[in-house]
Structure formats: structure tokens, C-alpha cells
């Protein structure tokens, strides 16, 4: 049995027919072909799949596609305003070498943006480290990710995003 779902992804209306068990991440990756959102585990631990649903960061491996029916979803593909103009968080990750293999990166960036906003653009190292508890990275040792997020917070505020 399939169920119809419709939602807005990165500002564009999308729809499809899914199984009841289809996860939001599967809908994004397999139905829409948006493979920027990754799956790194099967226990909602690694955070590679984080997207924004109605402005809040969500692990898209832990939400059914049908639960996102009618929602406004933003993925890593929808962050940059143009191919040459990255989001300040994306810029900060690049400037601070906060990524190596790139696999955890989409989830890291999406979590980080939500974190900065929830803390009203004011963060310290301990807060960033604590907030990153739901995102695993095996390459960077987190040092540069923390640096990037601390650098991005004022940049996001200045850019009004």
C-alpha cells in the first residue's frame, strides 16, 4: 500500500507515493534523488541525516516521510543562495577546514545552523561541544568543526540568516 505525501523541499513543492515505513531520508534520497543528506547509522546516533523541518533540526532517519506531509523541509542542497554564494556556516566550515571526507558534513552544517539560532548567535566552546553531541565525525576530531561554528555565529548574525 502506498500513501501520497506532499511537502516543500528547499522552497519547491514536491510530492510522491511512499510506503508507510518510508523514512523522510529515504524520500529525500531515493524518491527525490537529493543525495546530499546521508545515512551513517541505524540508531539515530550519528546525525549525518539532519535536515530542517519547519525550521527545526531533525534526524531525517527518525521521521517517517508521512510525518513530514505538509512540512517545509530544508536540506544541505537548499542552503546556498546561489552556486557562488554559500551560507555563512558553509563558508566557515570551508575556511576552518572543518570537513575531511565530507560524509558527516551535511548533518553537521544543518545541526550547527540550528544551534547558532537557538542560542541567539552567542556560543562558547563548551556549549558548541555539548550541542554537537548528536553528530558524529570520525575524521576531524571536532577541533575545526567547533572553530567553524564559533566563527559562523557572528557571520550569520551579520548576514541576517
Amino acid at each position: 500500500m502506498t500513501i501520497s505525501v506532499a511537502m516543500t523541499v528547499n522552497g519547491k513543492p514536491v510530492s510522491g507515493k511512499v510506503e508507510a515505513r518510508t523514512l523522510l531520508v529515504q524520500f529525500l534520497r531515493e524518491h527525490l534523488g537529493m543525495t546530499g543528506t546521508h545515512v551513517g547509522c541505524d540508531t539515530s546516533q550519528c546525525g549525518a541525516c539532519v535536515v530542517h523541518v519547519d525550521g527545526k533540526s531533525v534526524k531525517s532517519c527518525t521521521m517517517l516521510a508521512v510525518q513530514a506531509d505538509g512540512a517545509n523541509v530544508t536540506t544541505i542542497e537548499g542552503l546556498a543562495s546561489s552556486p557562488d554564494k554559500l551560507h555563512p556556516m558553509q563558508e566557515a566550515f570551508r575556511d576552518n577546514h572543518a570537513l575531511q571526507c565530507g560524509f558527516c558534513t551535511p548533518g553537521m552544517v544543518m545541526s550547527a545552523i540550528d544551534m547558532v539560532k537557538r542560542h541567539n548567535y552567542q556560543l562558547d566552546e563548551a556549549t558548541v561541544r555539548h550541542e554537537l553531541e548528536g553528530n558524529l565525525c570520525r575524521c576531524t576530531g571536532y577541533h575545526n568543526i567547533v572553530k567553524a561554528i564559533l566563527a559562523a555565529a557572528p557571520a550569520m548574525k551579520a548576514a541576517g540568516v
Binding site: G36, L99, F103
Partner: peptide, 21 residues
């Protein structure tokens, strides 16, 4: 030097095996 490979990884356009259609 900042990394050449970063742009694709930061914009969700990396190509990993599971991304193949």
C-alpha cells in the same frame, strides 16, 4: 590553501557509492 573538494561536500553534491542511481 583552502580545499578544492570542499564545495561539493558542503553543498550536498558529493558522489558516494550509495548516491548512485
Amino acid at each position: 590553501v583552502l580545499r578544492t573538494e570542499d564545495k561539493r561536500f558542503l553543498t550536498g553534491t558529493g558522489r558516494y557509492v550509495d548516491d548512485l542511481a
